[in-house]
Amino acid sequence: MTSRAENLLNHPALGAACRLLLGGLFIYTAISKLSDPADFARFIAAYRLLHPDLVNLAAITLPWIELIAGALLVLGVWPQSAALVIAGMLGLFLGAGFLAVVRGLDIECGCFLPFLGSDELDWTFFVRDAVLLLLAAQVWLWPSSFLPGRR
């Protein structure tokens, strides 16, 4: 990599922007899901990936993992760990969406991001999640923080 490109990629402003955007999005969607776990469980059930006994457990815990990981990312506390958790969830969502499309399920995404494309499992879903994965990769490679004494 040229040092110019690397200068750009590890620029503190870019790191802060990635953390704020990614963390902020996860906090936002988590709050939408937290307000109605029964509704979120219906979205998860529609994917038909989890055993029925595990659907509610996922609906109860996933939004909290999103919320905490998002908050840690925004603050820059354990930024690499938070980025890893978020990348893992994005990978999970991408895989679930891919399987739903492959199996021909006519379901809504359940992404709770009304301002970023439709809630259908169309190309915007895959592009959006792939871009968010890139933001997580930036944080993983060049972790930064707003807290004093961290970089």
């Binding site: 307000s35 776990p37 029964a38 609906a59 815990t61 939004p63 990981a69 354990w78 760990s81």
Partner: peptide, 27 residues
């Protein structure tokens, strides 16, 4: 980082279960 990620996942899940237990919207 992996240990931290595990801690985030387990801690958040535990918090979620706790809140769900006491929430009027719990399932």
């Amino acid at each position: 980082a992996i240990l931290g990620a595990l801690a985030i996942v387990l801690g958040s899940a535990a918090l979620g279960l706790l809140v769900n237990h006491f929430s009027p919207y719990g399932i």
